[in-house]
């Protein structure tokens, strides 16, 4: 008896330690970035253009660029991803084609982000002649986050109880009416959560925008979607590795802004999910 008890205790401790190991790096990253980055944050840093070869001034164009890119990516990826998710969860039959599509989505999620960058360069920049532009970058990021949006949206749609669909159909609603009036409204929170997680991912990636949009140094705001733009992750990369003698404060300040942006989006996703769980009672 006693032996079993001890084994159980050891097992629990191991499991607990493993869980703790996940929390430590996250905590450390956040603490270090805040500690070193927070002092750099002031109004000028957030609202000014980079000056003196990015060794002074602010990061405003990079913030704006990232917001443009993320917005563009979502305008492109959300409709396509949602429609695909509706097809997969509501209409597709379990056949070879469907399995191929699902396999493709899983694999799309596993493609290294630098490959997306090269793909975007070949397709959007060169083939469609969009050039290195916000358009090319947004489309590339959009493709990258498509699997996230499709997968989470599909889960959200499939978690709507079957009985709701059954009732709706039994009341004479068509399949589309059922989806439109019953399934979609109940899946919105899940879809939103997935979308925001996708946004966070798009905001933080460097490689896909490297060849498709990112400007090394562009101390003005982009004027159209065919302009290049600065972006936070790439700017961070540049001032950390490509430009000598950049004050540590500026680097960590940039990292802080980027991290805050991503964490903020994740927080919004968590809040939406929490609110929804509180309300849902079936």
């Amino acid at each position: 008896m006693k032996n079993t008890y001890r084994t159980q205790k050891i097992a629990f401790s191991l499991l607990f330690l493993a869980t703790l190991l996940i929390v430590i790096p996250v905590g450390l990253i956040v603490v270090i970035i805040i500690q070193k980055g927070l002092p750099a944050i002031n109004w000028q840093f957030l609202s000014d253009i980079p000056r003196q070869g990015m060794r002074a001034g602010g990061i405003f164009p990079a913030i704006v660029g990232t917001i443009y890119l993320v917005t563009g990516a979502i305008i492109f990826a959300l409709p396509i991803g949602l429609l695909a998710a509706i097809y997969l969860s509501e209409y597709s039959k379990d056949n070879l084609l469907t399995r191929l599509i699902k396999l493709a989505i899983v694999n799309l999620a596993g493609v290294p982000s630098v490959v997306y960058g090269l793909f975007g360069l070949a397709i959007f920049v060169v083939f469609f002649k969009f050039g290195a532009s916000i358009l090319s970058g947004s489309l590339t990021l959009g493709i990258m986050i498509l699997p996230v949006i499709i997968t989470t949206s599909r889960e959200a749609l499939e978690s709507v109880p079957y009985s709701f669909r059954e009732v709706s159909l039994s009341l004479g609603a068509s399949k589309w009416q059922t989806i439109r009036h019953i399934v979609l409204p109940n899946a919105v929170p899940g879809i939103l959560t997935g979308t925001i997680l996708g946004l966070g991912r798009a905001a933080g990636e460097t490689a896909p925008i490297l060849f498709t949009v990112a400007a090394f140094y562009l101390p003005r705001l982009p004027g159209s979607i065919f302009d290049q733009a600065m972006a936070l992750p790439y700017h961070l990369y540049v001032i950390s590795t490509q430009v000598p003698n950049v004050d540590e404060k500026i680097r960590y300040g940039t990292a802080f802004v980027l991290l805050s942006l991503v964490l903020f989006m994740n927080l919004v996703a968590i809040i939406i999910r929490y609110q929804f769980r509180k309300k849902k009672k079936w």
Binding site: P161, E166, V167, L169, S170, L171, W282
Partner: peptide
């Protein structure tokens, strides 16, 4: 038309949320 004419009450009460 058929389902409007012949409506169904299910085993578990299933109001929409």
């Amino acid at each position: 038309a058929l389902r409007k004419k012949a409506g169904m009450v299910f085993q578990r009460p299933n109001p929409f949320p």
